[in-house]
Design a protein around this nucleic acid. Sequence first.
DNA 1: AAACGTTATGTTATAGTATATCATCTTCTT
DNA 2: AAGAAGATGATATACTATAACATAACGTTT
Lengths: 155, 155
Amino acid sequence: MSAHKAQTTSGALKQAESLCSSRGTRLTEKRKQVLTGLLESQKALSAYELTAYCRNHLGSELPAMSVYRILEFLEGESLVHRLDLAKKYVACSHILCEHKHELPQFLICKACYKVQEISIKKSLIDSLNQSVEGASFRLASQQLEFDCFCEDCYE
Amino acid sequence: MSAHKAQTTSGALKQAESLCSSRGTRLTEKRKQVLTGLLESQKALSAYELTAYCRNHLGSELPAMSVYRILEFLEGESLVHRLDLAKKYVACSHILCEHKHELPQFLICKACYKVQEISIKKSLIDSLNQSVEGASFRLASQQLEFDCFCEDCYE
DNA sequence: AAACGTTATGTTATAGTATATCATCTTCTT
DNA sequence: AAGAAGATGATATACTATAACATAACGTTT
C-alpha cells in the first residue's frame, strides 16, 4: 500500500553512510547502532528505549545522553525524525529514495507508537496554511504530526 | 478579527460556576484560582507556572499536584484545554458562548506560547480524515494542535 | 448536632523526557 | 608527534507527570 518499497536495515545503513561521507560527516559505530535500532523497530522509540536496544540487542552500553546527541546528529542528516507529540524518534522511511523528499506527515498511534509516514495532498496543506495565516500565525513546520490509533489499536 | 467577543475573566468565571452547578459539580476556590490564571494569561501555562501564578498574584500556595488534579477537572468540564504539543494548558475561549462548541483546533506559538483557538473548515477536516483512513489509521481526536509562530515571533 | 460517606486537597515519592556542563577519548590534519 | 576538531562519557539538574496514601472540607442523613 505504501508508495515506496520497504527499506532494509542494511541497505539504509549503507545509503546513510554514503550520504554522510558525501557531506563530510561521519556515521560512526555508535551512530549506526542508534540508527539500526530505529530501522529495526516497527515503532517510534524514545532515547531511553534506544539505550535499552543497544544493550539488549547489540551488547553495547550507550548512555542516554549520548543517544540524545546522536539523535540530534541523525536528525540533522535527515536520517531520523523527532516526533514531538510522541516524544519519540523514528528512522526516516525515505533514506533509500533518490528523489528529493517532500515534507512528511506522521500518523502516530497513541497506544502502541506505530508510526506511518504519509504525504498529504498539497492542496490540503495549502488550505491549512491559509486557515493558519488567517489567524495571523504561521506553521512552524510543514512536518505535521497527528495523534491516531492504528488499526490494531482501535477502541 | 475573532468570531466572538473576548471574554472577561469575571464573566467567564461566573458562567463557569453556573455551568458546574448545573452539572452538580463544584467550582471551588482553588479551581477558580487556576481557571483565573489561565483566563488572565494571554498564553498557555504549565501546571508549575500556574502554581507560581497562584503564589505571586493570588497569594495562595497551591502545590503542583493539586494544580494537575484541578486541570483535569476543568478539562472534564470543558473549561480548559490541555495542549499536548506544548505540554501546557489554556482556558477555553468559548466559555461564554451559548451554542454547542465545535471541536477546536489550536495554533500554538513555539516561541511565546500564545495560543489561538480556531475552527478549521469542516471540508478540510474531512479530507484530512480521508488521508488518515487511507493509511489505516484514525485520528485520536479532532482537536488538532499545530506548532506555529505568531506574528510577533516570526523569525 | 453527630456520624457518615463523598469529594477535594495536601504530601511524598518516583518515573520519564531533556538539557547543560565538563572531562575524556578519537580522529584527522599538519 | 602535536595540536585541533569532533565524538563520547559522566554527572548534575530541570521540567512534566502520575501514583499512593493521608488529611480536610462538605453534604446528607439521622
